[in-house]
Design a protein around this nucleic acid. Structure first.
Lengths: 129, 129
DNA sequence: CTTGACCTTCCCGTGACGGGAAACCTTATG
DNA sequence: CATAAGGTTTCCCGTCACGGGAAGGTCAAG
C-alpha cells in the first residue's frame, strides 16, 4: 500500500502519517523506489492512533497506549490509569471553559448590542476604576 | 514604570509584555537608557489584555477588543458580536470535550483495571475486527 | 569598585501538524 | 517513444502564544 491508500483507509492525512513516522510512532517498510510500503499492521496502528487522537490523547499518550497495545503482558490497570489521567485533564479543561462561558455569557446578556457605545463587556474588561 | 513593576501590577509575565509590544498591542515609550517606560495607559491596556485573554479571547480578538475599547464612537453591537462569536467557539469546544469525555468514561468504566491484559479501552481503540 | 538585581535583544523550543517547493517515479495516452 | 498527469520523496517555513536561556548593558547599594 502506498501512502495515499493508507491515508484514505485510515482517515489520516498523508502529512500526518509522514509525521508519525518521523517521530517514531510507525516504521513502514520502503519499496525499491523509496516509496513507503505500508503493511496491514501499519494501517492498523494508524487507525488506532487516529481513534486515540480523536479522544484527545496527546501524541506521547498515544505512544504509551500503542506500547501497551503491543505488550501482550500488559496489565489493564496501566491502560486504565492512563485513561483516567486523561479523563481528569478533560474535566479540568471543561471546567475552565465553563467558567469562561459563565462569565462571558453574563457580560453578553448585559450588553444592549445597539449602536450606542456604552458596553458592559468593555467596562468589565477595563477593570475596576 | 519599568517592566517588572508593570508585570507585577498587571499580573502578566515580562516575557508576555515584551511579546505584546512586538506584535503591536502596546507601544510603551523608551527611557534614555533603552528601558521600556510604561505609562498608566500602558498598564491599563495590559490589564485589559490579561482579562480578555483569561476569558479565552485569541490575540487577534484581543486586538479588535482593544481597538473597540479605544474607539469612543464604537457601537456596542460590534463588541457584542465579537463576544457572541467567541461564546459559540467556547460552546463548540465544550461540546467536543463532552463528547470525548462521554466515550472515554464509558470505556474506563468497562475496564477491570487489574493485572490481567484484557482491556476494553484498547479493544475499542483497535477498532472493529 | 564590586556585587547583584535589573534591563535589553536574540535565538531556539513547544504540539501537531499544514502548505508549498523542487525533484523523482509511475502510468496513461498520442 | 515522448509527454503529460498524477503520485511520492525530502526539506523548510509557518502556525499560536509565549517560555527558557544566553550574552551583554545599566543601575543602586555597600
Amino acid at each position: 500500500m502506498n501512502i495515499a491508500d493508507v491515508a484514505r483507509r485510515s482517515g489520516l492525512p498523508a502529512k500526518t502519517i509522514r509525521y508519525y513516522e518521523e517521530i517514531g510512532l510507525i516504521r513502514p517498510a520502503r519499496s525499491a523506489n523509496g516509496y513507503r510500503a505500508f503493511a496491514g499492521a501499519d494501517l492498523h496502528k494508524l487507525a488506532f492512533l487516529g481513534r486515540a487522537r480523536s479522544l484527545g490523547f496527546s501524541i506521547e499518550e498515544c505512544r504509551k497506549l500503542l506500547a501497551l497495545w503491543e505488550d501482550r503482558s500488559r496489565a489493564s490497570a496501566d491502560v486504565k490509569a492512563l485513561a483516567e489521567a486523561h479523563l481528569r485533564e478533560i474535566d479540568a479543561k471543561i471546567a475552565e471553559l465553563r467558567a469562561m462561558r459563565g462569565t462571558l455569557a453574563g457580560l453578553v446578556s448585559c450588553c444592549a448590542g445597539d449602536d450606542r457605545p456604552e458596553c458592559p463587556i468593555l467596562t468589565d474588561l477595563a477593570g475596576p476604576d
